[in-house]
Design a binder for these strands. Structure first.
Lengths: 351, 351
DNA sequence: CCTTGGCACTCGTTTGGTGAGAGTGCCAGG
DNA sequence: CCTGGCACTCTCACCAAACGAGTGCCAAGG
């Protein structure tokens, strides 16, 4: 398998490359004749047919039906991406647009949302940005604001700059001063810990004797636990933008396929699982057709990249589109946006 | 025009009613024969044809082509809704679901978002909830939290329970104590005023002499203005949910119509304009086809209702769907959800 | 040994035509 | 005013034929 890159001789590689590129450009099955007319080869259609027949035997090409041209298979695309593709650099303009857009906002959630829109627009595909729950990340501060009798707004700021608000309803009565103090205490005590840690610490504290006597401490702990609880339920941690761009893709012209595709995009859980699995890997990931259940069933491809600070990946950004897409353009695009987000987050952290 | 309800005799009305109902149920053009077979009339197809021809002359019906059955026109639907429709009450179960869902959350934004989902699900149409900017509404409190050096989270709570957060970047340095004080001051000074008022007051204050000398007051005013500025840019004040349900509607089976429709839903500005125009009216509003540019071009109908507290409408909730929809069911549904939201908001206010 | 032109074969797509079916409009008679 | 009858129109489904695109294979030529 590791020799796969060697399996094809130079000419076969060129032919495969050309077929993929033409097919991506036109969307149609490629015939030996159109390939010969392209001018890249000094060969007759008949010779090309022989090469193409070989490529088909090896599983890189397929025919929709006898007497149609050939289209790349999953395997063909995969080979193309690994060994044949020449990435098309982003234009100066594109890079500027991205830097500007990503650099612009201050609230991370907002920046992420904008990023998915931007991605969708530049790629003309569905843009996805995923941010896993804050639970695994460290906090910088935690504050409480009295909003109404028995209603308290809790503001948690992560070291990565993510801001989460949540309204807590409680039977306990707090004055503004108390809340102020509690905020200071928790921030001081738990700075740099993850919510998960904090939660466990707080629970342990409830069991300690000392706490049972100090009324104020009791209230603090109660409020703290409330605040940390269910942060995961904060929704909108998956942004899917530009679903309408699917409509412009001819491969989804049959209404049924389209309907299925849309419903698939609605099933956010599955999408989240999939993106989560992209989270650990460091570089750019490309999932094609049969690579995963999700893409297999719906004939999608996914180009995704983790973003985050240094060694800690925070989330995943990527695009979803038909298998036939311009990988040579999409790959650098997603890569660049991922990097831009990482830079942004690292900047945030340093403040 | 006010006599329109009288323009048709009893039989014609019955026929129109029956045609609309059958067409809504089946989606097909209704022929004289199928109408006769329905059993509601003791007439032969030929007689019904005469009645139908009259209705067509008056503009209530139309034929897609010669020798097809007849379909209601905009005007036909409008007449049906105004004079012929018998609203179908909501079931006990539906009412319970709504009450529960709407009563559940605490943050208004969240409640509204849920409402649009709920609406989309119950109606099997696109659900829309619109909340205009806070600018016109009174505030209950305003608080500031130091998030990082030079970054301040501003929390504004409206008397209607809406909570808005916004991060402000500023060159000025504030301590936590100062922020606490400023919050108290502004809340005390401006309680019950609209953001618009507050803004003008603050600007006027900058010009007063007294302010020029008091350093602290200067900082307060600067921060206050920052906070009030651009509240309108907070997005997500329009929730559009369940766009995929359009895919299930046969009238949008041609891919082109579908594409257009989706793009239309993306154009949030136009949609906002339209919904804004529904805001002033008190009761339930139904816009059909040619009633507005938006619905005209895309062959939509909109069923909408204002919600809010007592005399002050806060926003609009409604559904968007094809002209052919079950108005008899949609109308009470939208109405009920609108009322539920209003109740919720009034409750919020009293706290 | 590779390349190439030729040729038969396969399929999908388009075209034209035909017939059935559904529905209307109109008319004349009850 | 209602109704049955009849001619007319339009759509749709179906079928056959022609067409075109593309392949596979083979035999001849460098």
């Amino acid at each position: 398998m590791s020799q796969q890159g060697e399996e094809l001789d130079g000419r076969a590689r060129e032919v495969l490359r050309e077929i993929v590129m033409q097919h991506v450009a036109t969307g149609e099955a490629i015939s030996s004749r159109s390939l010969a007319k392209g001018g890249h080869f000094q060969l007759s259609p008949a010779s090309l047919r022989n090469v193409m027949a070989d490529l088909e035997d090896l599983g890189y090409l397929a025919q929709p039906h006898t007497s149609a041209g050939r289209v790349p298979t999953d395997r063909g695309y995969r080979f193309f991406i690994n060994y044949l593709m020449k990435s098309r650099m982003l234009t100066q303009r594109e890079r500027e647009t991205i830097d500007e857009q990503v650099g612009h906002g201050t609230e991370i959630d907002h920046v992420l949302h904008e990023a998915s829109r931007l991605l969708s627009r530049l790629a003309d595909q569905v843009g996805v940005v995923f941010m896993p729950t804050l639970l695994q990340f460290a906090i910088r501060s935690m504050d409480f604001v009295l909003v109404a009798e028995n209603k308290i707004l809790c503001v948690i700021v992560g070291t990565n700059g993510v801001v989460v608000n949540k309204i807590i309803e409680t039977r306990l009565n707090f004055t503004r001063d108390e809340l102020e103090k509690i905020g200071r205490y928790i921030t001081g005590e738990f700075f740099g810990l993850t919510l998960d840690h904090i939660r466990r610490r707080l629970v342990r504290m409830t069991e300690e004797e000392r706490a049972m006597q100090d009324q104020m401490l009791q209230k603090t702990i109660a409020l703290g636990i409330e605040a940390v609880n269910d942060v995961r339920t904060i929704d909108n941690d998956l942004y899917v933008e530009g679903a309408a761009s699917i409509l412009t893709k001819p491969e989804f012209s049959e209404t049924m396929a389209l309907r299925k595709t849309f419903l698939a995009l609605q099933e956010k859980e599955k999408l989240i699982d999939l993106l989560n699995s992209c989270l650990t890997e460091d570089g750019l990931q490309i999932l094609i057709g049969s690579d995963s259940d999700f893409t297999h069933v719906h004939n999608f491809s996914i180009v995704a990249k983790s973003y985050g600070s240094h060694n800690a990946p925070l989330g995943v950004v990527g695009i979803i589109g038909p298998m036939r897409m311009e990988y040579a353009r999409m790959a650098p695009l997603v890569d660049y946006i991922g990097r831009a987000l990482s830079r942004k987050i690292e900047e945030e952290e340093q403040q």
